[in-house]
């Protein structure tokens, strides 16, 4: 049941070298740099997003993901969800407005898988990049590289998927769209949404807490995915796997790494979800096909390389 969480809003990614990272996310992926702050963090957005930023890069000595933020409808919803989290026994932390530039107050909490998430209601509305909101053109000229359309979702690896599910589904109103069940019926992967997309956030079981598998960005067409693959080669960027199709979600995809070893995805297509849909189930016996629909075998790097 919807509780006022609207969509993924941002992700803060740790990088080892800021200049190399900005080159990757801006020049190669086509995100637009929108600001920097006095901590040295760099703010970026994809062109079709209406708010000021969706990706924040922070230089650190270990790569990974600091947190993922979801936007909620308004302050009233934020107050309610904060109360719901506390009532459920989740410890919340207040992050003051403007800690991220032009972003309102954030409510931060860590789920049992070990990942930090945030809810916020306000961020500066700057409109789609390069387009007017009146009689807009089809797309803005001057985009670079892969021309990523939007920040779409993250996949995290960690333990305690059931307890993590409870927070997202029972407290925050996400729906389970797809799952992977092992022979005992234990859920080892869960794809969750607050929208019509097949996932806004996903988790795969892993012993170690708080691991980051990838941040994903949407492209329009399969041709765009192929073109992204060409650019990965042209720039000698570290490739993981693809272009290919997933069984889970049926998205058409390619995976690669940023210069600090964080995995990125660009993808197109995939299934859709309405709240009357029942979850789609994959069994671990068919995990190869669930993950890579064409190869039908597991790829060690995809399953185990994390930041």
């Amino acid at each position: 049941m919807k509780k006022g969480v609207i969509r993924p809003g941002h992700v803060q990614i740790r990088v080892l070298d800021m200049d190399a990272a900005v080159k990757h996310y801006a020049d190669l992926m086509g995100l637009i740099e929108t600001d920097r702050d006095d901590q040295g963090r760099v703010y970026l957005k994809a062109w079709s997003e209406v708010d000021k930023f969706s990706v924040v890069l922070r230089e650190a000595d270990e790569p990974g993901c600091d947190f993922m933020g979801f936007k909620v409808l308004d302050e009233e919803v934020l107050v309610q969800l904060e109360k719901d989290l506390v009532d459920y026994g989740v410890e919340v932390e207040q992050v003051r407005a403007e800690e991220l530039k032009d972003c309102g107050r954030r409510v931060r909490f860590t789920v049992p898988s070990g990942h930090a998430f945030e809810l916020y209601a306000d961020k500066l509305y700057t409109g789609k990049w390069g387009l007017s909101s009146v009689n807009p053109e089809a797309w803005p000229r001057g985009l670079r590289g892969m021309k990523a359309v939007r920040f779409d979702h993250c996949l995290f690896y960690g333990p305690e998927l059931a307890a993590t599910y409870d927070v997202f589904v029972n407290v925050l109103g996400f729906d389970l769209v797809e799952q992977v069940l092992d022979p005992e019926g234990t859920r080892v992967a869960q794809f969750l949404t607050v929208s019509m997309k097949e996932h806004d956030v996903a988790f795969i079981h892993h012993e170690e807490k708080g691991k980051f598998h990838h941040a994903s960005f949407h492209l329009e067409t399969w041709d765009d995915v192929l073109r992204a693959a060409d650019l990965i080669t042209m720039t000698d960027t570290s490739i993981d796997i693809g272009p290919t199709r997933h069984g889970l979600t049926h998205g058409k995809t390619i995976y690669f790494f940023d210069p600090s070893g964080n995995r990125n995805e660009v993808f197109c297509g995939g299934d859709y979800f309405y709240p009357d849909h029942k979850p789609v189930t994959w069994k671990t016996e068919e995990l190869g096909k669930a993950i890579f629909y064409h190869d039908r075998v597991l790829n060690e790097r995809f399953m185990t390389v994390l930041t």
């Binding site: 790569p63 570290s238 790494f257 210069p259 600090s260 070893g261 964080n262 790097r301 390389v305 930041t307």
Partner: peptide, 12 residues
């Protein structure tokens, strides 16, 4: 050696 991220991030 196993090839991971090639970016100094994953330790493989």
């Amino acid at each position: 050696v196993p090839v991971g991220c090639r970016g100094g991030g994953c330790g493989f």
